[in-house]
Design a protein around this nucleic acid. Structure first.
Length: 214
DNA sequence: CATGGGATTGACT
DNA sequence: GTCAATCCCATGC
């Protein structure tokens, strides 16, 4: 059976923008964080496959939303499917996807990508050649993709930063799970999720090196 | 209004 | 392994 274009019915374009809908994010953040592994973050001509995420929820003190609604945390309590971008250590912009229904403060931190498109631009912005080092950290990937604070509160389905479903044919094995990186509060919660990829940030979770080798 | 502390990174001992 | 860079914002006076 062959698809035929008809007047008033333009054929679907392969590769057309198919960002994840808000409903994808409107569920428990501990479900969304592993589900985002293998999905694609796109900004301008640059894109990468998500290989590492962390979950944050207002019920635990490592989450910015734990203190309640402020000017800074307002977006975390807003509608799911928006970007929460904040500045870390005065230098780096970190990208999160707001999750759970409106009124709940929760987000998934995107910690690492496997470079997929726009590698030349990434190399220029990062001043680095090695593909495994371009997006292997939450501050690195925003620099590589050219994402800044202006992306805060934008819609991840229709705005400048988009997250798209997993690529066809790309299978994500059972994620490696471990404690979150670089936090002092609620550091024991195993809310970090990693795919088997050399682009995961350091320290690598136990078992990653072995699974990469084999 | 002053101050202190980061969901990090890269350079260096 | 240690350490500084650098800015936003929450908190306290």
């Amino acid at each position: 059976m062959t698809a035929r274009a008809r007047p008033g019915r333009p054929p679907a374009r392969p590769g057309a923008s198919v960002a994840l809908p808000a409903a994808f994010y409107a569920r428990p953040v501990l479900e969304v964080a592993p589900a985002l592994l293998g999905c694609v973050v796109r900004h301008g001509d640059a894109a990468g496959v998500i290989v590492e995420t962390e979950a944050y929820h207002d019920s635990e003190p490592a989450c910015h939303a734990h203190i309640g609604r402020t000017a800074r945390t307002h977006v975390l309590f807003g509608p799911p499917g928006r970007a929460y971008v904040y500045r870390s250590y005065g230098i780096h912009a970190l990208l999160n996807a707001v999750c759970e229904p409106e009124g709940v403060g929760a987000a998934v931190l995107i910690r690492a990508l496997e470079p997929l498109a726009g590698l030349d631009g990434m190399r220029a912005r990062r001043g680095l050649d090695d593909p495994a080092g371009l997006c292997s950290g939450p501050g690195k990937l925003t620099q590589a993709l050219g994402i800044g604070m202006e992306g805060n509160a934008t819609d991840l389905a229709t705005g400048p930063i988009r997250i798209e479903p997993r690529l066809d044919g790309r299978l994500i094995e059972a994620p490696l799970v471990g404690p979150r990186i670089g936090i002092t509060k609620a550091a024991e919660l195993p809310w970090r999720f990693c795919a088997v990829s050399r682009s995961v940030s350091r320290p690598w979770p136990p078992g990653l090196r072995d699974r990469l080798g084999g």
